[in-house]
Design a protein around this nucleic acid. Structure first.
Lengths: 350, 350
DNA sequence: CAACTTTTGGCAACCGCTTGCCGCAATGTT
DNA sequence: AACATTGCGGCAAGCGGTTGCCAAAAGTTG
């Protein structure tokens, strides 16, 4: 004769409850609902493959159990991770923060997880991340990639990716059209009477740095201006001092600077040296980052829709990942820019 | 009799090569090495469980095939994801940039993936993220959580988490000790002859806002100062205008502001209104974010080791996830702060 | 009412890796 | 020489889902 009770037994309650220690799985739901796990799976992901009544029952149960599918398990069988990695050269730089903000926003909207990676301006780290994360991300967004053309081509052959501010024949790209705005900036300086201008360059490996210089050189000489170039400088405020000193030395009366960070650093140094901006020297930055409007003096800069660039990059990547049969996805997006004039530019001295 | 050849067959080559279309798995390596998959698995993750020679062979093969383990599969069987989610209320805010930078840094060092989530200052979004990501993260870092005490307690019962700038009895916490620095700031203002001071408050749901106000009120009245409080304001530069106007109206000669963002906004507005800082009004910010040193005038502020707070939070979380038998992990870290005096504070008017 | 089509749900084989358990061989112990 | 240890590697059962294939059930049609 069996003992009537055992403490380990719990009477069946009307409200189904899972063991609190373990996360509910598809199987728990299946048992409770009296169906197979496959049915639960389908009810949850391909709703029309299952009878509305069964489905509802399953959905209720799932909600009751607080069920959350394991993205790991799901990824394992489906082969997708539902995550996108965003690689930036310097997480410290406000410019990239705007990019991150943009990608984050758009990825979230698409229900995709963002994996953020700081490659520390290093070609090697970038490659390594690209390699190591192959399995954990469905695609990559490379902001201002430091990869060589060959590397980029190779990688983009293997895995979906889109670049930001790095033209490439092999991968879809979104570029911020700062170069064209440089013409506007030169026009602006020219109209203020400047004849000696200087380009303050950033990282030599930066594609956009090269692009900007090229346009600068062409257009300034076309205008008959005396053209200088200094650098390269690390694009941080701390390099601004060296840049400012070098700029002064060229005798130029106006500078167009690789980015706002550097420009702001220059502003500080120039003030220290007792030079007035814009009376003695005009400064044009680039990117219109956070801070460009409240530094002293507020910075005239080439305003870029940075955040939007991030969003567009995500769209391009996603449409590459889930191709719509008819439409082929876009390969290039050019984000327009414009000159935002603040107080750091003024008439040329004397 | 079997056909002698079939096109699908490839002669065995001396150099092992995998089908280019599929990612190499542990199984491919096992086959090539003539061992069982379990051996490969062990060779790669528990090196001393396997003969050095076998291990080396496997490692070479792995390198040759460019093998990268699938974190998904690994997580599925091990039950861990090797990822940590970092929840911030506003990815736009430089303060959180610094936190993110800190966590990112430390997580990367530990080989853990960072999942970044913007909860948009919303209690609900925060809860939802916490819920949805239960399965995809091993732990959570909540920066300036907007959760109620009850919610926080409940969540922290279920999953490992550490909060930043949000005291909690239930979860490990790292707080930045801005409140105590408020005393320094008041001392500073007092020594400059200010008698009428105003606290410009931030989000009412922010724990640190409450903490700051409490100290401000106590200490300023202890000093016999006339104490004002305005707000709450959304902690963005754009709210600075309203804050500045309200502050002027109180008749206070100095403000301590919830954060630098708001303070910078106030600086701008005061200038617009023709008020001089610090001659007519002194401003003390909080956090020493990017930009506090180059705004106009440079902001006196309560400097916080924000990035370090992020790093410490990660350490605390990780030691919670991989507990060292002997040592119990720390439950509270208080980050010291200090007053950084720049140009936005000066002697009280007349 | 039989023959046929469409739903609906179950079975079972994965996805790639981990791990408890076991067996075999080599080494160490009396 | 017989026996106990230890080191190394294999077997196989998962982890939590997805999905192709099939069969039962339900709905259609002449």
């Amino acid at each position: 004769m069996a003992k009537a009770t055992a403490n380990s037994e719990t009477p069946v309650t009307s409200q189904p409850r899972m063991p609190t220690d373990r996360m509910p799985t598809i199987r728990d739901i299946a048992e409770l609902a009296g169906v197979a796990t496959s049915t639960v799976s389908r009810a949850l992901s391909r709703p029309d493959r299952v009878n509305p009544r069964t489905r509802q029952r399953i959905e209720e149960l799932a909600a009751q159990l607080n069920y959350v599918p394991s993205s790991q398990a799901r990824g394992l069988s489906s082969g997708r991770t539902n995550a996108v990695a965003v690689l930036v050269p310097d997480i410290t730089n406000p410019f990239y923060f705007d990019i991150i903000r943009g990608t984050q926003h758009q990825l979230k909207a698409a229900g995709v997880t963002q994996l953020l990676v700081d490659t520390e301006e290093s070609n090697e780290m970038e490659l390594e991340a690209l390699h190591k994360m192959r399995r954990s991300a469905d695609g990559f967004i490379l902001a201002a990639s430091r990869l060589t053309d060959a590397q980029l081509a190779e990688v983009s052959g293997t895995q979906p990716l889109v670049t930001i501010n790095r033209a490439s024949a092999s991968a879809p790209t979104v570029v911020i059209d700062t170069p064209s705005a440089i013409i506007q900036a030169l026009e602006h300086l020219s109209s203020l009477g400047h004849h000696r201008v200087c380009y303050v360059s950033g990282p030599p490996t930066s594609w956009s740095n090269q692009a900007r210089w090229k346009v600068f050189e062409e257009d300034s000489s076309k205008r008959g201006m005396e053209t200088h170039r200094i650098g390269p400088f690390v694009p941080k405020t701390t390099s601004g001092a060296a840049a400012a000193d070098a700029a002064v030395r060229t005798g130029a009366t106006a500078c167009i600077v690789f980015n706002d960070l550097l420009a702001i650093g220059m502003l500080q140094r120039l003030r220290e040296r007792g030079m007035r901006v814009p009376e003695d020297m005009s400064i044009v930055g680039s990117d219109d980052i956070f801070g460009a409007d409240f530094c002293n003096p507020p910075l005239t800069t080439i305003a870029s829709p940075i955040e939007q660039a991030g969003r567009v990059a995500v769209s391009m990547l996603l449409s590459q990942l889930n191709p719509t049969p008819g439409r082929s996805s876009r390969k290039l997006a050019i984000m327009p820019t414009h000159l935002t004039i603040r107080a750091s530019t003024g008439p040329a001295p004397d």
